[in-house]
Design a protein around this nucleic acid. Structure first.
Lengths: 332, 332
DNA sequence: TTGAAAGCGGTACCAT
DNA sequence: ATGGTACCGCTTTCAA
């Protein structure tokens, strides 16, 4: 072996007394290698600790078996859970995860999407509906033209884009139904952003009202900051000065926390339902009833899709919708 | 341009009427290119949307500008915060992040560390003290022999390993002091794991007791599951059946949540101090006083170190310790 | 079953 | 300032 730091395929070939082609065959598990030859080559590989150079392999194959992940913010509980699940699943399929956090600006989302394509990843997974824009999804369409794109909990209908989502509209629709059945008529709806997911939930809220013959009161549909003290102040103020409400639906657990605090302080007892069923739901006092939107299942479905796509199978559905599930705790 | 999907440097050279060497120079911003030539080449690059193939570049340079990150679990709030911060910082320095989640088994930690080395990453960052083992840190030492290794909040003293940590021992030591000053003498200490970080905190707890002339009561030092209901049950039981305590120190915010719930139920009011100052501290009721162990700062320091190391500067400290900071809220 | 050699797409040294 | 060319290390086709 030469004095390079790591041995290469030539070193192995030389020491095993074969050509590099044979070493390559052994490495790829080809059956066109005589057993004795394979043994000899393997012995040299073991003894030298040789591992193939991934860049060279990537250059020849056009792939380093990496999947690019785009999320707006890993420090968010929901995204972190998704990425944790995806990492395990991807690794099991032999892929590495290249992680990009974009923040909310469309410019950065586009820019990072571009970087990912330049890196020649094998696929791109968009985590969260924050990636579907109202007007301009050209970057997603463009990416999909080059490589499979999977969106977790977002929907962009375009060839090459595969979506795995939770039926959050239905979940929120059902929430309204449950509260209605328990006699509630003035439900407060809190949300922080109108991403695709945000719009679905709001839509479910409104549609349910209509179907139940109630006109949703716009004064009870409030956009607020994703921030406990803000929500707390907001709800405290509403308790004092109206408009009156007799139940609360929040688009995110974190918002519900603020709600619970305000309610507890004022000694008001109305049902609250959160969304995401994150650890925050268990931390809240009283413990929060929350909609579980099945992150782990969504990710598992995405991973399965991905394998299908990379094997160029034609039976991969372009859209897959899972049901959410209400996890009842103390607040309802 | 040929019918390949993406243009390569030869296509650009041909269309610009120059050699590939010149294109390469333009790409690398060399000043040894005539301005008119540069313009011509740039024009072709723009118009074709050419981007250099990272595998080829990686092969030649021996690097794809990627940093490998190892953490036991991204879905943990603390690690997620760290990884979020690191991602931004690394990207700013032009590095991509290859994320690996190992779980707690040493076998997997070693295995994934090996994978990372095989990928020829430019550096490895270990997030969390879970990576320092009691007995066997050969995998870390071995990795450090090949590539810079940085540990966030962990300590392995060995050449090539750089550590950035928060002085959690001192923080816990101070906590005991504060509680002592407010008249507390029987402090309950809860922890879930004895990682390096866990041992530091416990050590601070015990040392402070000794320095204050109190023998720490081993019956008040309790290891519990990292799980709200378990802690809650544990503390509820202690309130009823003893041993008695008049303050609680927890090694993690999540444990404190269980404590707060049990205290609230029993109507007992004793000070509680959590650790990590995560979002959970704000979610708790009452809001939790917690030690901020400066994840963002630690990560920033790590990023700075990394740049120094990759520039082969010799002024990079092998150990850097930051102070923690107590964030006072309602529980103390 | 095995080997020789042509890519893959860059970087960088050496001429000119 | 520019071009020619030898690497970097692997995969794969074509011959033998």
């Amino acid at each position: 072996m030469s004095e390079r730091n790591t041995p290469n395929i030539y070193d192995i070939a030389e020491r095993a007394g074969v050509s590099i082609a044979t070493v390559s065959r052994v490495l790829s598990g080809s059956d066109k290698v005589r057993e004795t030859t394979r043994k000899r080559v393997m012995a040299v590989i073991e003894e030298t600790g040789y591992t193939p150079n991934p860049f060279a392999r990537g250059l020849g194959l056009g792939s380093m078996k990496m999947v690019g992940i785009l999320c707006t913010d890993v420090s968010d509980l929901y995204y972190a859970a998704a990425i944790s699940a995806l990492e395990r699943l991807l690794r099991r399929s032999g892929f590495d995860m290249l992680l990009y956090c974009t923040g909310d600006s469309l410019t950065d989302k586009k820019r990072y999407m571009g970087f990912l394509l330049e890196k020649h990843v094998d696929a791109i997974i968009l985590v969260g509906s924050a990636f579907k824009e109202q007007d301009d999804n050209t970057h997603i369409e463009n990416a999909a033209a080059n490589v499979p794109v999977i969106i977790i909990n977002g929907l962009v209908e375009c060839p090459g884009v595969y979506c795995v989502l939770c039926d959050e509209k239905q979940a929120m629709y059902d929430n309204v139904g449950y509260l209605y059945a328990s006699g509630r008529r003035r439900m407060l709806y809190l949300y922080d952003a109108l991403t695709f997911s945000g719009m679905q939930k709001l839509d479910g809220f409104k549609t349910a009202h209509c179907d139940l013959g109630m006109a949703p009161d716009e004064a009870l549909i409030i956009r607020c900051k994703r921030d406990i003290p803000s929500v707390r102040a907001l709800v405290a103020d509403m308790i004092c000065h109206g408009p009156a409400f007799d139940a609360v639906l929040a688009a995110e657990d974190i918002l519900s926390i603020g709600v619970c605090k305000a309610l507890a302080e004022a000694g008001v007892d109305v049902p609250v339902i959160g969304f995401n069923n994150s650890i925050l739901a268990q931390c809240a006092t009283p413990e929060l009833t929350s909609v579980d939107n099945r992150v782990a299942k969504l990710c598992a479905a995405a991973a399965t899709m991905l394998e299908g796509l990379l094997e160029k199978r034609s039976d991969v559905p372009s859209k897959l919708i899972l049901e959410a599930k209400l996890v009842r705790r103390s607040t309802f």
